[in-house]
Nucleic acid binder design. Structure first.
Lengths: 161, 161
DNA sequence: TGCGATTGGTTTGGGCCCGAACGATCGAGC
DNA sequence: GCTCGATCGTTCGGGCCCAAACCAATCGCA
């Protein structure tokens, strides 16, 4: 949200429009930078790692969750990935048509659908994830304390729930 | 990406699949938490502040940039907002049809288009932004050092460019 | 001055994204 | 057994999202 302009300049402009209100500019800067970072990182990873494999961001997240947990119910994937079940339904259909995942109705509960990776899906993830992690390392290389960075982000996530 | 499961459990699963490779789990956790936070914050703000005004996230960002800078070229909006010019073109059409912004071809350069807020657009932002900032304050209330948090996020953004 | 290269915004096509509505299934309590 | 409420995945409609193709305007450079 806040961009090439300086922070001070942005504050000045906001103050000019809402001078009579008390605002929290530090909070504004943090939220703004959160989205700039997430956007930049996502675009970067999509271009460098995902595009060559013809995968979208969300498709990769779905594959990742299924890969880690081997056999997952769709509701779990949606919760872990942070998107709606409606979105997941479409992405799963795409991945299924490409032969990367398989849907199977649960035997113990007829409402649930279990998802697993096909052999092709597992092979793809095994090749992709190391590249992905290399980029993650590069992206965070200038972050001093990774542990406290993760904790800070978790604090924001929790504060919204 | 990483969700209800514990971090240690996730690492164990990844290690089981890629045990022979060196991975950076701390970097993985930071990137993962970055997206969880951004998703959670965005969804929260959309539901609490934006939905009542019938605005999407991107539409609000566009309005915000134009509001701050009064008269902006579309290329600037796209750069500040962090999305493509193709996306912007569609969102601007939506906002224009709702009477919140106006497009005007630049007089000095026939390729450029300047965007301004209408009176209705300014009125909307004046009412909306204080609510938005209140939520931003609440979201960051458990972050100890807002300054270093913003710096950390900036470091990640810069590392991808 | 002329013309190829660059820049800027829009359009197009395909995919993601959500809330709401829907049909199927399950389970608690009678 | 039966029913009512809750849960699950899918579908639908509308909007966002991007890359690539496109056209108009401008610039660079001889």
């Amino acid at each position: 949200m806040a961009g090439p302009h300086t922070l001070a300049e942005t504050e000045r402009q906001v103050q000019a429009r809402l001078g009579d209100l008390t605002l929290d500019f530090e909070a504004m800067a943090v939220v703004s930078n959160l989205f700039r970072a997430a956007n930049a990182v996502r675009n970067h990873l999509e271009r460098t790692v995902l595009a060559p494999a013809d995968l979208t961001w969300t498709a990769f997240v779905v594959l990742w969750v299924v890969w880690i947990w081997d056999r997952v119910e769709t509701r779990t994937i949606a919760a872990e990935g942070g998107f709606s079940k409606a979105t997941l339904s479409g992405v799963l259909s795409t991945l299924e048509s490409r032969g990367l995942v398989e849907r199977a109705r649960s035997e113990s509960d007829g409402r649930l659908v279990d998802v697993t990776l096909t052999t092709a899906g597992r092979k793809l993830m095994r090749g992709l994830f190391p590249q992905f992690n290399d980029e993650e390392r590069a992206i965070t290389r200038h972050v001093e304390d990774l542990g406290s960075a993760a904790a800070m982000l978790r604090a924001m996530t929790l504060a919204t729930e």
